[in-house]
Computed example of a mutant assay.
Amino acid sequence: MDPLPASLAQAETPAAVIDLDRMQHNISRMQQRMDALGVAFRPHAKTSKCIPVVQAQIAAGARGITVSTLKEAEHFFAAGIADILYAVGMVPGKLAQALALRRQGCDLKILCDSVASAEAIVACGAAHGEAFEVWIEIDSDGHRSGIRADEPALLQVARVLHEGGARLGGVMTHAGSSYDLDTPAALAAMAEQERAACVLAAQRLRAAGLPCPVVSVGSTPTALSASQLDGVTEVRAGVYVFFDLVMRNIGVCREQDIALSVLTTVIGHQPEKGWAIVDAGWMAMSRDRGTQKQKQDFGYGQVCDAAGQVLEGYTLVGANQEHGILARSGEPDRDIAARFPLGTVLRILPNHACATGAQFPAYRACRADGTTERWERVHGW
């Protein structure tokens, strides 16, 4: 079994580890693809919630970022990143927080998908002399939120915003149902469906005499599967920076591209069951079982050696709060105690990088030479 990098030898486990070479390769791959397609790229920071990761994405060519909480927006703005899309539907109770960010100089864009939300935004803006920049969320696949591109409500919402003094910044969509696909043809078709819906919404707004400068689409699977993005101005994607086992099963990355892993230690055995017990339970890995409904189920994660090389057939088959159960698929490994002696350090690749990262206050960012740094994450809302 390959040795543990020296700088991780003293790390307490469980710990979230970023392989920086893999991460940088993932960043470069996505940015080069967006450059080739002729669109701006606005990465979603909700995956890493980490300033050095986002700074690497911007250094590679990203223009602005996407966030999932206003606390993320505050965190990244304090680090000097001003062009921020808050990609969750706005509610009245959060407008004061958004207003404060804009008053501090943050170029914050907010999201809307209903007349009620639009009315609350323009009322707040009028009361405080603020012209919020608002994008309208488009439902391109029935996955979650948004207005369908052909609905009358699209123009109704746009007029409330435009006539009420808000700045109508554009339209955006997220084809989250791409996560349910696993063939290149299906992914390419979903990417085109996502593009076409958002472009249609923009065309309808412009035909009605309403502004729509931005047409924003994206998910990691569709971003890596689109053949052309005519009419789109920018793409958003998040999990690509680390990738995970769900993305591996979808077919947009390989196991050796997954840049996030959880460092764990073997703390016991049940040899008659073929189990090794590790100190990474669901509190470390998260409860996300995203691969369970896919063609290959990795349990709570794929087991790797200390250097991050996949140990074929070994997964975390079960998890309690602080205990993970490591076992071999098929015939139980009766020699598991000898194979993974007490104190053995391993790494586990996660099902969902966003969910696993969220279990930790910081990452161990590991370079090729084995040196590491502690990179803090932001938590909360």
Rank of each mutant, 00 (worst) to 15 (best):
M1T: 10
D2E: 12
P3E: 04
L4P: 10
L4Y: 01
A6N: 06
L8W: 10
E12G: 05
E12A: 12
T13S: 14
T13Q: 05
R22M: 03
Q24G: 00
S28V: 12
R29S: 05
Q32A: 15
M34I: 01
D35M: 05
A36N: 06
A36M: 08
L37H: 10
G38W: 11
A40N: 09
F41L: 06
R42M: 12
P43Q: 11
H44K: 02
A45L: 10
K49A: 12
Q55E: 13
Q57A: 07
A59D: 14
V67H: 12
V67R: 08
L70M: 01
K71F: 00
F76D: 07
A79F: 05
A82N: 11
D83G: 06
L85E: 04
Y86H: 05
V88G: 09
G89C: 12
M90W: 00
Q97W: 03
A98T: 01
A98F: 03
L99A: 15
L99W: 07
L99F: 00
A100R: 07
L101Q: 08
R102Y: 00
C106Y: 03
C106R: 01
D107Y: 00
K109H: 00
V115E: 13
A118I: 10
A120Q: 13
A120S: 15
C124H: 15
A131Q: 10
A131G: 04
E137G: 04
D141C: 15
R144N: 13
R144V: 00
L155R: 01
G164P: 08
R167T: 15
R167F: 01
H174E: 02
A175G: 07
P184C: 07
L187C: 02
A188K: 05
M190G: 02
E194V: 01
R195I: 07
A196Y: 00
A197C: 07
V199C: 04
V199Q: 07
R204F: 11
A207W: 03
L210Q: 06
C212V: 08
S216R: 03
V217E: 05
P221E: 04
A223H: 02
A223F: 00
A226E: 11
S227R: 15
D230G: 11
R236E: 03
A237M: 04
G238I: 11
F242R: 00
F242E: 13
F242S: 12
F242A: 13
F243C: 13
F243S: 15
D244F: 09
L245S: 01
V246Q: 12
N249A: 10
V252C: 09
I258Y: 12
A259I: 09
V262F: 10
Q270Y: 08
P271T: 15
I277N: 01
V278H: 02
D279T: 06
G281Q: 00
A284G: 11
M285V: 04
R287V: 02
G290H: 14
T291S: 13
Q292F: 11
Q292A: 15
Q292I: 09
Q292N: 03
N320W: 01
Q321Y: 11
I325T: 07
I325W: 14
D333N: 10
R334L: 15
I336E: 07
I336R: 08
A337Q: 14
P341F: 04
G343N: 08
N351F: 11
G357N: 13
A358C: 09
A362S: 14
A365N: 02
A368M: 02
G370P: 05
T371M: 02
E373L: 06
R374W: 01
W375Q: 11
R377M: 08
H379N: 06
